[in-house]
């Protein structure tokens, strides 16, 4: 726990809805070390975005967060709005799936970059402008000088996402949270953006959280992976260990559902049947039990706790984990 740049401790996020309380994040513990990359993987609605918003203290007004979010020695849940705002521009940055969430449509790219830099770093306008051009070049934007006078709508989706990344990187943050940064983009652009994030992360020795529903995205690009289901972390391990031996049936099922390149066309995909449970109607037992092919015995009556496997770094929440070498 100690020594981590970010540590989320026992985070719970509750949202009131007309259908009753919705527990979006359910007792989550996570750490990210300085310069490390964590992948958070799961289907839509499993709580990934709410967790990242809880870290950033950007939850909807009605949401209730309990637990601690320790970042660089301070508990973000206790910081004033003013301090948080400073921190978010400076040390803690975010890139969303839709770049327009973080870009202002009525300001030029140059204005947005330069304003952010001047506000958070002690640079004058000319220096900030120079810095902006360098950043745009670093994120692979051709003719960066000319882009400064353009508006976001004049760029393609991929180019906008590059600009959003440039804005996020502009103040040399210690932690970057990228929430489905490439889900809306084409495969070739996705590969370029992921490479760009990895390169900048290493160059700046920045910590990073990549949120995605695709295990393929995190495989070669993270140090650790946390798999979320129904608001909980259900498996967590160093990336190589996870892919070597998945213990939680949900993780295995997510991997199996990806189309494989080495099987002939028309091979039926091992789909996960059904859907995630209604988060306003929490299940008594394991949340995955209605869809789990290994469900048996206490799976439907008791919640499995996240606990270590053979090694302390590999945690999973399952009563009938997949044994080494496959099969539960």
């Amino acid at each position: 726990m100690s020594g981590a740049l970010l540590s989320v401790e026992n985070a719970v996020v509750d949202l009131p809805t007309p259908r009753g309380n919705l527990r979006a994040v359910d007792h989550v513990d996570l750490e990210v070390g300085a310069g490390k990359t964590l992948g958070i993987v799961g289907e839509s609605g499993c709580g990934k975005t709410m967790l990242s918003r809880a870290i950033l203290q950007l939850l909807p007004k009605k949401a209730k967060l309990s637990g601690r979010v320790m970042f660089d020695g301070q508990d973000l849940t206790r910081l004033s709005a003013e301090k948080l705002r400073k921190l978010r521009g400076r040390s803690l940055a975010v890139v969303f799936q839709d770049p327009m969430t973080s870009l202002n449509p009525v300001l030029t790219i140059g204005t947005q970059l330069i304003e952010t830099i001047v506000e958070h770093l002690e640079l004058d306008l000319a220096q900030a402008r120079q810095r902006s051009v360098e950043l745009l070049a670093a994120v692979g934007i051709p003719a960066p000088e000319q882009r400064l006078t353009q508006y976001p709508h004049q760029l393609s989706g991929g180019m906008r996402q590059r600009v959003a990344i440039a804005v996020a990187l502009s103040c040399e943050p210690q932690l970057l949270i990228a929430d489905e940064p490439t889900t809306a983009l084409d495969v070739t652009i996705q590969a370029q953006i992921l490479d760009l994030l990895a390169r900048e992360q290493q160059r700046r020795h920045m910590a990073m959280i990549i949120i995605t529903h695709d295990l393929g995205v995190v495989a070669g690009r993270t140090d650790e992976v946390a798999v979320m289901y129904a608001g909980r972390v259900v498996e967590r391990a160093p990336t190589p260990a996870l892919f070597k031996q998945m213990r939680m049936p949900y993780t295995e099922a997510l991997l199996a559902a990806l189309p494989k390149l080495d099987v002939p066309p028309h091979t039926p995909l091992p789909a996960i049947s059904g859907r995630p449970p209604d988060p306003t109607r929490p299940l008594k037992g394991c949340s995955f039990s209605p869809r789990c092919r290994y469900s048996a015995g206490r799976c439907s009556t008791e919640k499995p706790r996240l606990s270590p496997a053979e090694t302390l770094e590999h945690l999973y929440a399952c009563f009938h984990p997949i044994a080494a070498g496959g099969g539960a």
Partner: peptide, 13 residues
Amino acid sequence: AIPVPDPDVRPTQ
């Protein structure tokens, strides 16, 4: 450009 779910296959860049 297809992301491969295998950590041993490093992205080619």
